[in-house]
């Protein structure tokens, strides 16, 4: 009993050798990873990589061909569904239902009862209080996304799985959701986030799993992954940018560039040769952006 509790504390989700095919096409190929308690875990990959299938298999909506999934150290059961929150990519809601009734119905399917005050709390928190008795179809796209977010979290799940959570949100509501997510994380919620918005992943995720064509291509701590991919230099300049030795790839945007360095490149030499040709406004050595790593990994796979 003690062991199970300790395990639940450390690892929330464990996926081993997961394989799933549709017809003869392998959508997930021998994937394994784990997600720890109260971490924000990024699930990345280009379109059609198998992310949604992976989430559906985790949620037991689809059955895997092979492999094992353990949630809180146990195999999947219907009861476990009540401890998981899910925000799907598709904005699926009952348009003719009132906002309040819509939340209440989905919450009841998660085993929640007498939650009127809780619904009020969440509507107020996400500035939707005035829409409580309006039909869902009267809400803007962004508001509907917020409503879906409430539905996914109202039952205070232990794991929250979000598929493109910021899709359709304006910057203010995006920040509101982000702050709420961090608040939930601090309260002990495990968050798994699938998105294409790499900047958000960099800001929020502790660890990531990147899949491409159903296969695992990157997995682990975000900082470690970034440092493994060497360093890059951000430069702001005026003039015509040369390509000094030690630069593997340059993303030149005219007066701003990201230069990916080769493994043993000397940053001092590069700085010197750049300063000779252009007027430098800014020179910053940093780990490559996740966006850059993403593009590099996916292109190498082609």
């Amino acid at each position: 009993m003690e062991d199970v509790k300790t395990m639940e504390k450390k690892v929330t989700l464990e996926v081993e050798n997961l394989t799933k095919s549709f017809d003869s096409k392998k959508v997930l190929d021998n994937i394994f990873f784990s997600v720890k308690k109260d971490e924000v875990f990024g699930l990345l990959g280009p379109n059609g990589a198998g992310k949604t299938t992976m989430i559906r298999v985790i949620l037991d909506i689809l059955k895997p061909d092979a492999g094992e999934i353990k949630i809180f150290g146990k195999s999947f059961s219907e009861k476990i569904k009540e401890r998981i929150g899910y925000l799907p990519e598709e904005s699926g809601l009952y348009k003719k239902l009132k906002v309040f009734d819509c939340i209440k119905y989905f919450a009841s399917l998660k085993g929640m009862e007498n939650i009127d005050s809780k619904i009020d709390y969440w509507l107020k928190k996400l500035n939707l209080q005035e829409y409580k008795n309006k039909n869902v179809q009267e809400l803007s796209k962004g508001m509907q996304r917020q409503l879906q977010f409430i539905i996914s979290t109202i039952h205070n799940p232990d794991i929250l799985i979000l598929d493109e959570p910021f899709y359709g949100l304006d910057p203010i509501n995006k920040k509101l959701i982000k702050d709420t997510l961090l608040e939930l994380k601090n309260k002990g919620m495990t968050i798994i986030m699938s998105t294409h918005q790499m900047d958000e992943v960099e800001r929020m995720c502790d660890r990531i799993l990147m899949i491409n064509k159903g296969r695992k291509v990157l997995y682990g701590n975000l900082n470690e992954i970034k440092s493994k991919h060497g360093f890059s230099i951000m430069v702001e300049y005026e003039g015509k940018l040369p390509k000094p030795e030690g630069i593997k790839k340059a993303n030149d945007y005219g007066n701003y560039a990201e230069l990916i360095l080769e493994k043993n490149a000397n940053t001092q030499t590069i700085l010197k040769s750049l300063a000779e040709k252009v007027e430098l406004k800014k020179f910053e050595v940093k780990t490559p952006s996740l966006n850059e790593i993403f593009i590099e990994v996916v292109e190498n796979e082609k």
Binding site: L59, I61, K81, E82, P88, E90, S91, F106, Q148
Partner: peptide, 16 residues
């Protein structure tokens, strides 16, 4: 049409 299938199936089995 409301695309609620996925959300429902994350809370309840298809049989239920």
């Amino acid at each position: 049409e409301s695309k609620t299938g996925e959300l429902l199936l994350s809370s309840i089995s298809a049989d239920q």
